[in-house]
């Protein structure tokens, strides 16, 4: 068994597995990682199942101490841990070691994966934490301790994780318009697609409010509450849009002008307050095609980083064979 103590955890740090489906009808959103690709990368590079339980680290950062070990870990997401030399890498924690994970120059969320079974509560079959209720593995708080069962040391995986370059585009966020776009003035639809938006610091796992022009509604505040999917851009009576994310409410009465395509949700989540974005409308057919293309690219990427590259000694040996010389 490995054991950790949380020396410090900022706000919005929580345990997350891949998230749950099938309970939207009971008011339960999927939860799970804000950036699903980085989450899967951290687990896969460590030799874990892609959906294993991680700690999702927020801009607030995380400091933890390994009390029992050793155990290998992986960190992926944004540029978190860059200063500490941990960004996008697999490494091993020894008992007594303290690990500091701070946001680097980019990204809002990172994933710390553990080679073993993180022993935290499940709810509805998953450890994904729903922040508002605290249900699931739970929020990570200063002073907490947790165990990791069946810890492994993954010598053959230590080192950098290749970053998913395919996800680091700065093009517009693609959206499918609707389902309540008929409740907006034409000027609002034009502004939504034509103007540049900024993320505000009203940003948590439920969603992020955007700053930009006011989006004028028609008489829409009396519409009955409708089901909501992740990525929905909801506009309240004040004309301010909010992109609803991992812990979104499952139904709501404010009209949704558009929904951000799944393929662009990870990089949207990695923007920071003050970061800017534009929206571009695509058809539902295009959105489905994009999901399928990205799934294939993602599968290739994850298969590539899943392969152990050998122990340090084996890698040095390979170097040695290539160069024919190695210093003592």
């Amino acid at each position: 068994m490995a054991k950790f103590r949380i020396t410090f955890a900022g706000p919005h740090v929580s345990f997350q597995d891949a998230g749950r489906t099938g309970h939207l009808r009971f008011g339960v959103p999927g939860s799970g990682p804000m950036d699903r690709l980085s989450f899967a990368a951290a687990n896969t590079a460590l030799g874990n199942p892609a959906g294993a339980t991680t700690i999702e680290v927020s801009m607030g950062g995380l400091v933890l101490e390994c009390l029992e070990g050793p155990i290998s870990l992986a960190l992926a997401g944004g540029d978190f841990g860059a200063q500490q030399g941990l960004a996008w890498s697999v490494f091993t924690a020894q008992p007594g070691e303290k690990l500091t994970i701070r946001p680097g120059t980019s990204g809002s969320w990172a994933y710390l994966a553990f080679a073993g079974d993180v022993d935290v509560p499940q709810w509805l079959g998953h450890t994904a934490t729903h922040a508002l209720s605290g249900l699931g593995g739970g929020r990570v708080r200063t002073g907490d301790m947790f165990d990791v069962q069946n810890p492994r040391v993954e010598d053959a995986r230590i080192g950098d994780i290749a970053r998913p370059e395919f996800d680091r585009t700065d093009g517009p966020m693609r959206v499918v318009m609707g389902p309540q776009d008929q409740f907006f003035q034409q000027s609002a639809l034009d502004a939504f697609l034509g103007e540049t938006w900024a993320l505000t610091d009203a940003y948590d796992r439920m969603g992020v409010r955007l700053a930009g022009p006011k989006l004028e509604l028609k008489d829409a505040l009396g519409i009955p509450s409708e089901p909501i999917l992740r990525g929905s851009v909801q506009v309240a009576g004040d004309g301010v849009p909010t992109v609803l994310l991992a812990d979104h409410g499952t139904t709501g009465g404010y009209p949704k002008i558009a929904v951000v395509a799944a393929v662009d949700q990870d990089r949207l989540c990695q923007l920071r307050a003050g970061g800017t974005l534009r929206f571009a409308a695509i058809s539902p057919e295009e959105a489905v095609k994009l999901v399928r293309t990205r799934d294939a690219v993602m599968t290739d990427y994850l298969s590539a980083i899943a392969i152990p590259r050998g122990s340090l000694q084996q890698r040095l040996m390979r170097e040695n064979l290539i160069t024919g010389f190695i210093e003592d």
């Binding site: 489906t21 099938g22 309970h23 939207l24 009808r25 009955p224 509450s225 409708e226 089901p227 999917l229 499952t250 139904t251 799944a262 539902p284 057919e285 959105a287 489905v288 999901v291 399928r292 799934d295």
Partner: peptide
């Protein structure tokens, strides 16, 4: 089909886009 979310006047049919589509 992944799940269905009933509300007041409508319901959301959630599907897996890797195996089916809107049409």
């Amino acid at each position: 089909l992944v799940e269905v979310v009933p509300a007041f006047v409508n319901l959301m049919v959630v599907f897996d886009p890797l195996v089916t589509d809107h049409a």
